[in-house]
Amino acid sequence: MTEQFTVSYGALVPVEVYWDDLDLMGTLYHPRFVALLDRAVTAHWASKGYRLSGRRLDEDGYQLLREVAITFDRPITDFGTVVMHLWAEKAGTTSMVLGFRLLSGDGAEEYAHGHRVSIKIDPRTKQPAPWTARARADIEELLREPAQV
């Protein structure tokens, strides 16, 4: 990131655009936006101490992606560090809706925005399963609107 900036809700996660992510027109190839989103989500949860791969995968790491919606606001025309602003729009018993904005390193430009829906599953039954208390607390920290008591 070239400059530090803050947001009033959610988390900021730097992600790298590599030169081979750009297409022949010199812009970020559209499927790579989702890859950047996945990298940011993985980096965020790993920074909270969740193990998301390997033999000791955390229980809350078993998730299926249900939906990704993205609106492209402007092209990314160079490689380097960009910032994903992530927040929780909704936390269900077994699901969560993350909102996101992909921003320039200084936060001045928005390249894309949208949401991502994931469902936590039981690894044995492959059926939806409730979040652990730990995950629920971490998801609630990301909520755009505080939970109503």
Rank of each mutant, 00 (worst) to 15 (best):
G61R: 14
T93G: 13
L86R: 00
P75G: 10
I70H: 03
D58K: 02
Y50S: 09
R51D: 09
I76H: 06
W87K: 02
S104M: 09
G105W: 05
R66Y: 08
D58A: 15
T81A: 07
T71F: 00
R56I: 01
I76T: 10
V68T: 12
L64Y: 04
G80A: 04
S104P: 08
T94L: 06
S104G: 09
T81S: 09
G107L: 07
L64S: 10
R55I: 03
I76W: 05
R55P: 14
L98G: 00
W87V: 01
D73S: 09
L103N: 05
G107A: 09
V97R: 15
V68P: 00
F100S: 00
P75R: 13
D78Y: 08
K48N: 12
V68Q: 02
S47C: 05
T93E: 10
V82G: 00
T93L: 10
E59P: 00
D60S: 04
S53L: 12
A88G: 01
L102D: 09
S104Y: 04
L57F: 06
W87T: 01
L57N: 03
R101F: 06
S104A: 08
R56E: 15
W87H: 12
I70D: 03
R101V: 08
L86G: 02
L102G: 06
T94S: 15
R51K: 13
D58Q: 07
S47V: 05
F79T: 06
M96I: 11
V82Y: 00
R51Q: 14
L65P: 00
E89V: 14
F79H: 10
D58F: 13
L57W: 08
T94C: 08
E67G: 05
K48E: 15
L57A: 04
G105C: 11
F72S: 01
R55N: 11
F79V: 00
D106R: 13
S53Y: 15
Y50D: 07
G107Q: 07
R101T: 10
S95T: 11
I70M: 08
R74S: 15
L98I: 02
I70Q: 01
P75V: 07
